[in-house]
């Protein structure tokens, strides 16, 4: 065997072992309260690495009512490829009042349907968190108080399952953004600031995704 063929063989062997785990992408759930920017982030990640989006974003809470998955997103960082399935979930809450949708200029029928879909979606997302997720990106709106019971419970659930978790303090482009308040709320985890909308600090987000979920 010539030197070149030998080299090519050993390179393909090395890369085969490097990518051995990639056949099973890690399933990463994007969780967080309604309106935090989960879908905006999921779309940005999907667009950056696959070219298309995950689902619609909206200022109306519970826009995402069914978990949506973008499979086989390959994120390359420092010569390393991380292969993940992104699952964008509905914002988690303990209450849904259909009449809140009426404030967004919706007919009653549509508001009722929307709230029913929202509750089903949240139930499903909670179920997955217990059964089906390999890691979590927890998105918070950094202009809002992070010390809520839902956030505390969810982080507790994630910790009890020993899932790797990244906390993202989103919407840093806004005036009232307070990154420190988010990192104070969950000092046991790393908090990464970003603006999913403007695409600020996405490099660090991808670096951490590769580090935590690779």
């Amino acid at each position: 065997m010539g030197l070149f063929a030998e080299l090519r063989d050993s390179i393909s062997r090395v890369s085969a072992s490097l990518f051995a785990d990639d056949s099973e992408p890690k399933r990463i759930g994007i969780y967080g309260p309604p309106n935090a920017g989960k879908t905006t982030l999921a779309n940005r990640i999907a667009r950056d690495w696959t070219g298309d989006a995950v689902g619609p974003e909206s200022h109306i809470p519970h826009e995402t009512r069914r978990a949506r998955r973008k499979e086989n997103v390959e994120i390359k960082r420092d010569g390393k490829t991380v292969n993940i399935d992104i699952v964008d979930t509905p914002g988690v809450t303990t209450k849904v009042d259909y009449s809140e949708f009426l404030e967004h200029d919706m007919e009653k029928d549509e508001a009722v349907r929307r709230s029913r879909e929202a509750t089903e979606g949240v139930a499903e997302a909670m179920h997955w968190l217990r059964e089906d997720v390999d890691g979590v990106i927890y998105v918070l709106d950094s202009t809002e108080d992070p010390f809520t019971q839902v956030n505390t419970m969810l982080i507790g659930i994630i910790e009890s399952r020993d899932l790797p978790v990244l906390i993202l303090a989103n919407k840093t482009d806004l005036e009232g953004s307070n990154i420190q308040r988010v990192s104070n709320a969950f000092p046991q985890h790393e908090t990464i600031p970003l603006s999913a909308l403007e695409g600020e600090n996405m490099d660090e987000v991808y670096e951490k995704i590769a580090e935590y979920f690779g």
């Binding site: 988690v92 303990t94 849904v96 509750t119 139930a123 909670m126 179920h127 968190l129 419970m153 659930i157």
Partner: peptide, 10 residues
């Protein structure tokens, strides 16, 4: 707690 949220939603 996660089951409580799930059942509440349903």
């Amino acid at each position: 707690e996660s089951k409580l949220i799930e059942v509440t939603m349903s």
